[in-house]
Structures are given as structure tokens and as C-alpha cells.
Design a protein around this nucleic acid. Structure first.
Lengths: 191, 191
DNA sequence: CGTGGAGTTGAATACGATCAACACCGGTGG
DNA sequence: CCACCGGTGTTGATCGTATTCAACTCCACG
């Protein structure tokens, strides 16, 4: 049984496939680097379970600048929380590497609720609450930590991601420009 | 049945008491304005269901500045997501008004999982996912919206809160200084 | 009255954004 | 093999915005 409630929380579950849980409504696709899976404004946002490769979700503000909301390496589920209301998607989602993706239709979530074994529930709940914790921490960092502190925290929390994405995307995730991150890092080395 | 999974997601549930669900491990307390319910570093963070009054959760950064993470008016549950790991609390929680509070021990969450009626589950899940959506939106706003945009969004989303807390606390929630918010607002009126 | 918290305003400062130039590297094609 | 190119990252100069520090007003409350 894979982590399905995790759809809601983008939780990691490395071991198996979603499709073994719920046969219907899940299809496997291959996407190439740069391919867009979901656009801002799309109706009926979907979930994307990453079997291999790397996705990202992001917004584009009214000045055309990208802001990365999250990265999705193997075993993670990338999705837009707007999905549950059937509301238009707030996030873009595209591939940073060639990837194998299982696409989860919103309707499957309902289906899942009727099928979940009870003993599985606490685990799923913990995974969701863990995601809430991650978002809580991100908000606190954005409000109260310096760029350097946020960068150090990111490197420590996601060391594998740092090596796979260009630095300008880390900057985007941290909420600063690539130039600012570059300068802060070089300042740090001198200090 | 009140919203208990909501503990994880700070969800609102106006109608009834938590204590009717699970007799044990819940105690009712009265706190006065200014009273501190939880400190940063406390072991075993608790949940606080607000029967009446108003709570807030916040951090204090290494320069001594407060940053409000959330407000908790009647019917909301305020808590620190660190609770689930038994980790030290990351947030302070105190009362902005005299309040009646039901204190939820972490152990009760486990107990709840064994008792929840199945037909209640989808509702609880939706509430949790709604909280994830709220946090997602907050992150996006912090990264991509101006102070004025964030303020307008806050007023529209929580009109009742704006009237009950001093403006400096709204500024703290938005991630700016009270002076900056004051100036942005007066600029806006002229324009 | 007087006191303290809240909000506003102004001046100086700090920090990140913006704009521009350049070095570096990895591919591609001549 | 080399010349070219696009993407990336660095650095510098300038600009804009929020922070900081300070003074002042306003009000609620003793």
C-alpha cells in the first residue's frame, strides 16, 4: 500500500507504485525535461507521483517572475492543493529532468477514502501532518531568517536537490534573486 | 463529533466541544489576555481548541523580533506541528484576549485515530487539506506579492480578525514592520 | 491629569532587486 | 580541432523598498 493520502501532503513513499492500490484513474506517462504538466488556471488540478526524475511546482507573479513552491524528486507527489475544491490550479508544474510520472485524477482521492484499511490511517495522517510541519517551517523561515540562513537550512534539509538543480532555482525556492544568493554565498566565504 | 483531525490542520469547527468526543486527556482552562500557553523549546507541544477568545502562535527570531504564524479565534485549534514528533515546540502561543481553552494532549491524537467513525473521515481529510491549501497560499503570497497585496488579501480573508487585533500584529503576520504597513496603507489612500 | 500603548511620519540606513558586463563551461556544427 | 553559442554563475553600480531609529499625536485607562 503506497502513501495515497499523501497526495494531499506531497509525502514521500519510495517503495511501490500508486497504481497497485487503485487500478482505475491512474495512468503512467513519460515526460521530457522542460515539459509542462499543469498550468496556472487549469481546471481540475491533478496529482503527480514521481517514479523517476524531478518535477517542480511554481507560480508566476504579475511581473512574470517565477517562484518555486516545491521540488519533487523520486517518490514524491507533486500537486496543487487547489485540487480538492475543483478550483483552478494556482501552480504551474513542469519537469526539470526526463521523468516517469503517474498521474492521479482528483476523483481517485474520494475513491481512496472508501478503500483505505484502518490500520493504515495513522501512518497516512502522520505523513500529512509532516507536510504541514514542512510548510510551517518554510513560512517561519521566510518571515524570520536571512537569505543565508534559509540557504544553509535548504542545503541541510535537501542536500540531494542542491546537486541536481541550477542555483538560480534554489534562489527561486528561497525567495531571492540568483544574484542575491550568489553574493550572499561569496560574502559568507570571506567572513 | 467535532473536528479532531483538525488538530493537525488548525481547522475551524464552531458547533461543539472536543471534550464530548474523547472524555479523557482534555481539560478546560481559562486564560487571561497576555498569558503564555506554550513557549519555544517546550517538550511535547499541545493543541489548543479555542472555545472563546483569541490566541496567536508566533516565533521570536535571533534578534528578538516576533513573527506571528497564525491567529486562533473561536472554533479554531492552534497548535505547533512539531507536536507529532514529540519534538520541542517551535512556536510560542499566547492569548490576545481572555479566552476559554480546551487543552489537547498529544496522546489523544492517537486515541482518536482508533475511534473515528469512517463516514467522518472524508470530512476530516478535507479540513486538513484545506489547511495545507491555506499554508500553500501563504507561502506563495510571501514570495510573490507586495506588502499591500498581502494586506488586502488578509483583510478579505480574515475581516473579523483585522478588527480585533492591533495593526502591528497584522504587520507581524504579513512579515513586515508596523511602520512599513502604516506607510503602505497611507500611500495607497493617496494613489 | 498623567502614563503607556498604538499609530503615524520623517530621516538615515541596510538590504535585496535590477540592470549590465563578463567569465566559464558544455555542447554543436563548421 | 576550433569557433560559436546558450545557459549559468559571478561581480559591480545603481535603484527601490523595507528597516531602523526617533519624534510626535492620539486615546484609553489609571
Amino acid at each position: 500500500m503506497s502513501s495515497f493520502l499523501a497526495f494531499l501532503g506531497f509525502e514521500k513513499d519510495f517503495e511501490d507504485n500508486l497504481s497497485s492500490d487503485i487500478g482505475s484513474s491512474i495512468k503512467l506517462i513519460s515526460v521530457k525535461k522542460g515539459e509542462v504538466l499543469q498550468k496556472n488556471g487549469d481546471l481540475k488540478a491533478k496529482g503527480f507521483f514521481v517514479k523517476s526524475g524531478l518535477l517542480r511546482s511554481y507560480t508566476i507573479d504579475n511581473k512574470g517572475k517565477e517562484h518555486i513552491f516545491m521540488f519533487g524528486p523520486e517518490g514524491w507527489i507533486v500537486g496543487d492543493m487547489e485540487f480538492h475544491a475543483g478550483a483552478p490550479a494556482a501552480l504551474y508544474i513542469d519537469a526539470l529532468e526526463d521523468s516517469e510520472i503517474e498521474v492521479i485524477e482528483p476523483s481517485v482521492v474520494e475513491e481512496f477514502f472508501e478503500k483505505i484499511p484502518l490500520e493504515q490511517l495513522p501512518t497516512e495522517i502522520k505523513r500529512m501532518s509532516n507536510r504541514l510541519l514542512v510548510l510551517q517551517k518554510r513560512i517561519i523561515m521566510l518571515m524570520s531568517a536571512s537569505v543565508l540562513e534559509r540557504y544553509d537550512d535548504f542545503v541541510q534539509t535537501y542536500p540531494h536537490i542542491v546537486q541536481r538543480v541550477p542555483q538560480r532555482m534554489v534562489a527561486s525556492y528561497l525567495g531571492v534573486t540568483p544574484e542575491a544568493l550568489s553574493k550572499v554565498k561569496s560574502e559568507h566565504l570571506k567572513g
